[in-house]
Design a protein around this nucleic acid. Sequence first.
DNA 1: CTAGTGATTGTTGAA
DNA 2: TTCAACAATCACTAG
Length: 157
Amino acid sequence: MKSSKGKGAAKYSKESLKPVDDRKVGKRKAATKADKSSSQKKQRDAKKDPNKPKRPPSAFFVFLEEFRKDFKKEHPDVKAVSAVGKAGGQRWKSMSDAEKAPYEAKAAKRKSDYEKLMKAYNKKQESTADDENEGNDEEDEASAEEEEEEEDDEDED
DNA sequence: CTAGTGATTGTTGAA
DNA sequence: TTCAACAATCACTAG
């Protein structure tokens, strides 16, 4: 699935896929915690999912992390997160696929771990009324093995 | 004091 | 296939 390179399937979208990208969709934040009774820092919530894994940062975010450092380095006085976001956004679009490659690779790895977390998260849910758990297969080791795969290929010097 | 807000794009999960 | 919200950051502001 996936349109892949676009091309062949870039038809249905185009206009239909537009409504989303334009204006921040009307504010995706403002979770307005609402409760906060317990001063538990900004833990986003405590009643929704016990331990839902946070979404893996996209290549853009990975790039942003480095970009922020560099940006602040040249703009130590800038204190607006939006400034970095905008600058990073433009810079990101200015980058070539090859340059984004390393970031995508990292993001891809992040996703791998995320999938694992999701597995563990599913198990924790364990609510569903009955769910007897039956055999309960522990299979999958929830422990994420830290296997730092340093794959550096890409351009060789 | 607490935590939401802004701004970027990508990604993922659900319908 | 399509939509929609969320991922990090950092100083400021409001109640």
